Simulated scan of single mutants.
Amino acid sequence: MTGTANILYFAALREQIGRESQLAAIPPGGVTVTGLLGQLGAADPRVASAFAAEPRLRVAVNQTLGSLDRIVQPGDEVAIFPPMTGG
Protein backbone atom coordinates (compact mmCIF):
# COMPACT_ATOMS: atom_id res chain seq x y z
CA MET A 1 0.00 0.00 0.00
CA THR A 2 1.33 3.42 -0.97
CA GLY A 3 1.21 6.30 1.50
CA THR A 4 1.59 10.02 0.93
CA ALA A 5 3.90 12.83 1.95
CA ASN A 6 2.89 16.47 2.22
CA ILE A 7 5.04 18.59 -0.11
CA LEU A 8 5.42 22.31 0.67
CA TYR A 9 6.78 24.84 -1.82
CA PHE A 10 8.34 28.13 -0.70
CA ALA A 11 9.50 31.46 -2.15
CA ALA A 12 9.98 31.62 -5.93
CA LEU A 13 9.09 27.94 -6.32
CA ARG A 14 5.61 28.55 -4.93
CA GLU A 15 5.11 31.42 -7.36
CA GLN A 16 6.39 29.46 -10.38
CA ILE A 17 4.39 26.31 -9.56
CA GLY A 18 1.22 28.17 -8.63
CA ARG A 19 0.48 26.37 -5.37
CA GLU A 20 1.95 26.15 -1.91
CA SER A 21 1.51 22.43 -1.29
CA GLN A 22 0.46 19.05 -2.65
CA LEU A 23 0.37 15.41 -1.67
CA ALA A 24 2.77 12.94 -3.29
CA ALA A 25 2.56 9.15 -3.36
CA ILE A 26 5.38 7.49 -1.42
CA PRO A 27 6.05 3.74 -1.71
CA PRO A 28 6.14 1.67 1.51
CA GLY A 29 9.97 1.51 1.57
CA GLY A 30 10.28 5.25 1.00
CA VAL A 31 11.99 7.19 -1.77
CA THR A 32 15.04 9.46 -1.83
CA VAL A 33 14.49 13.19 -2.06
CA THR A 34 16.09 13.03 -5.53
CA GLY A 35 13.58 10.36 -6.57
CA LEU A 36 10.71 12.38 -5.13
CA LEU A 37 11.80 15.53 -7.01
CA GLY A 38 11.93 13.50 -10.23
CA GLN A 39 8.48 12.07 -9.55
CA LEU A 40 7.01 15.53 -8.89
CA GLY A 41 8.60 16.99 -12.02
CA ALA A 42 7.45 14.10 -14.21
CA ALA A 43 3.87 14.57 -13.03
CA ASP A 44 3.64 18.35 -13.64
CA PRO A 45 5.47 20.44 -16.25
CA ARG A 46 5.23 23.56 -14.05
CA VAL A 47 7.08 21.73 -11.27
CA ALA A 48 9.71 20.43 -13.70
CA SER A 49 10.25 23.94 -15.05
CA ALA A 50 10.52 25.45 -11.56
CA PHE A 51 13.02 22.78 -10.46
CA ALA A 52 15.09 23.32 -13.62
CA ALA A 53 15.22 27.07 -12.93
CA GLU A 54 16.56 26.42 -9.39
CA PRO A 55 19.22 23.71 -9.77
CA ARG A 56 20.41 23.96 -6.15
CA LEU A 57 17.18 23.26 -4.30
CA ARG A 58 17.19 22.97 -0.53
CA VAL A 59 14.94 20.52 1.27
CA ALA A 60 13.76 19.93 4.80
CA VAL A 61 12.13 16.67 5.85
CA ASN A 62 9.96 16.99 8.94
CA GLN A 63 11.43 20.47 9.55
CA THR A 64 15.05 19.28 9.50
CA LEU A 65 17.33 20.31 6.64
CA GLY A 66 18.30 17.26 4.67
CA SER A 67 20.33 16.07 1.74
CA LEU A 68 19.05 14.82 -1.60
CA ASP A 69 19.80 11.22 -0.61
CA ARG A 70 17.57 11.42 2.49
CA ILE A 71 14.77 8.85 2.46
CA VAL A 72 11.23 10.24 2.53
CA GLN A 73 8.71 7.95 4.22
CA PRO A 74 4.91 7.94 4.00
CA GLY A 75 3.57 10.58 6.39
CA ASP A 76 6.60 12.86 6.10
CA GLU A 77 6.45 16.58 5.39
CA VAL A 78 8.91 17.77 2.75
CA ALA A 79 9.62 21.49 2.33
CA ILE A 80 11.32 22.50 -0.93
CA PHE A 81 12.84 25.94 -1.38
CA PRO A 82 15.51 27.74 -3.38
CA PRO A 83 18.87 28.57 -1.80
CA MET A 84 18.71 31.37 0.72
CA THR A 85 20.29 34.67 -0.15
CA GLY A 86 20.90 37.57 2.10
CA GLY A 87 22.93 40.63 2.64
Rank of each mutant, 00 (worst) to 15 (best):
G41S: 10
A79I: 14
L68I: 11
E77Q: 14
P45M: 01
G86D: 06
T4C: 07
Q39I: 05
A42L: 09
T85H: 08
V72T: 00
L68R: 15
E77W: 08
F10A: 06
Q16G: 03
P83H: 10
N6K: 15
P45I: 11
T34K: 04
R46N: 14
R56P: 00
V33W: 09
G87C: 04
V33M: 07
G18W: 04
R14I: 09
T34E: 05
Q22D: 08
I7M: 01
G86M: 09
R14F: 10
I17H: 07
A48D: 11
F81I: 10
E54N: 15
R19A: 09
R46S: 13
Q16P: 07
L57T: 13
Q16A: 11
G41A: 02
A52D: 12
S21W: 12
Q22E: 15
V33P: 09
A12D: 06
I26H: 01
T64C: 07
I7W: 00
L23G: 14
A60F: 03
R56N: 15
I71C: 06
L13K: 04
Q22L: 12
R19L: 05
I7T: 02
L65Y: 15
E15H: 04
A43F: 06
A24F: 00
S49G: 13
L40C: 02
L23E: 15
A60S: 05
L57K: 10
A12E: 09
Q39V: 05
D69E: 13
L37K: 07
F51R: 04
V78S: 07
S67V: 07
A25G: 09
P27G: 00
A79W: 04
Q39S: 13
I80F: 02
Q39C: 00
R56S: 14
T64S: 13
D44G: 08
P83V: 13
A53W: 13
L37Q: 07
A53M: 08
R58D: 00
Q39R: 14
L57V: 11
T85R: 11
L23V: 10
A12K: 14
V72W: 06
A42C: 07
L36P: 10
R14E: 04
A48V: 09
V61W: 01
G29K: 14
V72Q: 07
S67M: 11
G75W: 11
Q16I: 01
F10K: 04
D44H: 13
S21R: 14
A48E: 12
L23I: 05
A48W: 02
M1C: 03
A43D: 02
Y9M: 07
R14P: 08
V59W: 02
G30M: 02
I71A: 00
G3W: 04
A25H: 12
V78C: 06
M84Q: 10
T64G: 00
I71G: 03
T64M: 05
A60T: 12
P83M: 08
I71Y: 02
V72H: 08
A79P: 07
S49Y: 08
P28D: 09
D44L: 08
V47H: 05
S49P: 03
A11P: 10
A25V: 15
F81H: 04
A43L: 09
